Amino acid sequence: MIKGYIFDLDGTLLDSLNVWDNVGNRYLQSIGIQGPDDLDSLMEHMSLQEAALYMKNTFVLTQSVNEVALGITYIIEEAYEKSIPLKIGARKVIEKCFDKNYQIVAFTAGSVELATKALMRLNLFHYFQNIYSCQTCGYNKTEIESYLTLVKSMNLKVKECVVVEDALYAIETAVNAGCYVKAIYDQANQKDWDKICGIAHEHYESFIEMEDRI
């Protein structure tokens, strides 16, 4: 019996992945360094703190890891505060989960602060019992412990939790953790979509299709 939903944010609830495009190089350029064109792909599966550590070590930055993370955050913060839209149909899905008394939490590879700002601006924050990040739970989304930690904090069993995600690597991890996974299409996962459809328990082109399956 399903009792809770774990929603990813970027690329799932929020149409925000373009905001993160090339953000590593945009930060490096702000401090006078030109990074490689493939920096985005190299950091694709990293949390914000992991990306900051990678950049500090790779480019021998004088800034601390926290300063790098803050610099990246500053670049994208305005978009979360003012402009990133919600995916079409996502509000109704969240409202339906709430009406059915499911626990609702968010799990982001970014920062809790940014997630909170976006959800508050979109008038969705009050639906969520908690917002988790890879940093706060202590694991990234390639580690099954990340989802197991969230499920435990919700006082649920893994079979009682649905994970809604767009990224192939996170979908694989959530499935391996034992969660029921609903995949949502995003332009960024187009190249992985066929594989995602073969792994996720359910897959949807949009939240509009998902609404009747909550």
Rank of each mutant, 00 (worst) to 15 (best):
M1S: 08
G4C: 15
Y5P: 11
Y5V: 12
F7V: 00
T12W: 01
D15C: 04
S16N: 01
S16K: 01
L17T: 11
N18Q: 08
D21Y: 09
N22H: 13
L28G: 13
S30D: 14
I31F: 06
I31N: 08
P36C: 07
D37N: 14
D37L: 13
L42G: 02
L42S: 03
E44H: 09
H45Q: 07
M46Y: 01
E50L: 04
M55R: 00
M55L: 10
K56T: 06
K56L: 05
F59K: 04
S64F: 11
V68N: 02
G71K: 10
T73V: 06
Y74I: 11
E77R: 03
E77M: 09
G89W: 00
A90L: 01
I94S: 06
K96Q: 03
K96Y: 02
Y102T: 01
Q103P: 05
I104D: 02
V105T: 12
V112N: 13
L114M: 07
A115E: 05
A115K: 04
A118W: 00
L119R: 02
M120A: 15
R121S: 13
L122I: 12
N123I: 14
L124G: 15
L124N: 04
F125G: 11
H126R: 14
Y127H: 13
S133L: 11
Q135C: 12
Y139F: 14
N140T: 10
K141Q: 12
E143Y: 03
I144Y: 14
S146E: 04
S146D: 06
Y147D: 07
T149P: 14
T149K: 12
T149Y: 09
L150E: 13
K152F: 08
V158A: 10
E160S: 14
E160R: 13
V163N: 07
V163R: 02
V164K: 07
V164D: 09
A167M: 03
A167D: 05
Y169M: 09
A170R: 08
E172G: 08
N176F: 13
A177Q: 09
G178R: 10
C179M: 11
Y180C: 14
V181I: 14
V181W: 13
V181G: 12
K182L: 10
Y185Q: 00
D186K: 00
N189S: 04
Q190P: 03
W193L: 08
D194R: 12
D194I: 09
C197H: 01
G198S: 10
H201G: 11
E205T: 05
S206K: 00
F207T: 00
E209H: 11
E209W: 01
E209Q: 09
M210D: 01
E211F: 07
E211H: 05
D212H: 12
I214Q: 02
